[in-house]
Simulated scan of single mutants.
Amino acid sequence: MIDQTDPSPLLTPAAAAKILAVSVKQLTHLTLAGEIPFVNIGLGNKRPTRRYLPTDIDEFIARRRTTAMPLVLKQQIKSAASATYEIIDIEKRLADLRAARQRARACRPGKS
């Protein structure tokens, strides 16, 4: 992945983003989400100057590495999820709610 013999071991956000093939903005979001650790070389925490260790980038890639899900499993998941939905007639449902509301108003004491 990354040449560990490089004399400058810290990567700029642009260099780290290039290795990951993402934008600097996406790298920042991953960093803020705690997915990729960084080194703050700035003077404070208000606006950190982020640099990335090549080993941290490699570890992130290794954690995110995955294999494709088998097609059969995808179909099982899709069919299991769709089985939980119920198709309703929204007009009938609204009419039933309106009728129930009218019955409730009619049963209130003190109403004429």
Rank of each mutant, 00 (worst) to 15 (best):
T84K: 15
T49W: 06
G34N: 07
R98A: 00
I2C: 04
D56N: 15
V39M: 07
D96F: 07
I88F: 13
A100E: 15
L71E: 15
V22G: 12
V72F: 07
G44R: 11
R64Q: 15
G110R: 03
K111S: 10
D58E: 14
S82K: 14
N45C: 06
Y85G: 02
P37A: 14
A80K: 15
K111A: 14
A100V: 03
I41H: 04
A21F: 04
R65C: 02
R65S: 10
A81W: 05
A83Q: 15
R101T: 00
A104H: 04
V72K: 15
A17R: 03
D56W: 12
G34T: 08
R93V: 04
P48F: 09
A62G: 09
K46R: 13
I41E: 10
P7R: 06
T28S: 15
L20Q: 07
L30P: 02
G110E: 02
T67V: 13
I77H: 11
R105N: 08
A68P: 10
I61D: 08
A100R: 12
K46L: 11
R98M: 01
V39C: 10
I57Y: 05
L10T: 04
I41V: 15
T84V: 09
K92C: 05
P7E: 04
G110Q: 01
Q4T: 03
F38N: 01
K92H: 07
I90M: 08
P37F: 04
T49G: 07
A99D: 15
T12G: 02
T49N: 09
V39S: 10
K18V: 03
Q4A: 03
K25D: 04
L94G: 03
R64L: 01
T66F: 08
D6I: 01
T49P: 02
S8Y: 11
Q75G: 05
R103C: 00
S79W: 06
P109Q: 13
A14M: 04
A99F: 06
N40C: 00
T84A: 07
M1P: 11
I2D: 09
A106M: 06
A83T: 08
Q76K: 14
R63H: 14
Y52Q: 08
V72E: 15
S79I: 04
P9R: 05
A15I: 07
T5Q: 11
R101G: 00
L20S: 11
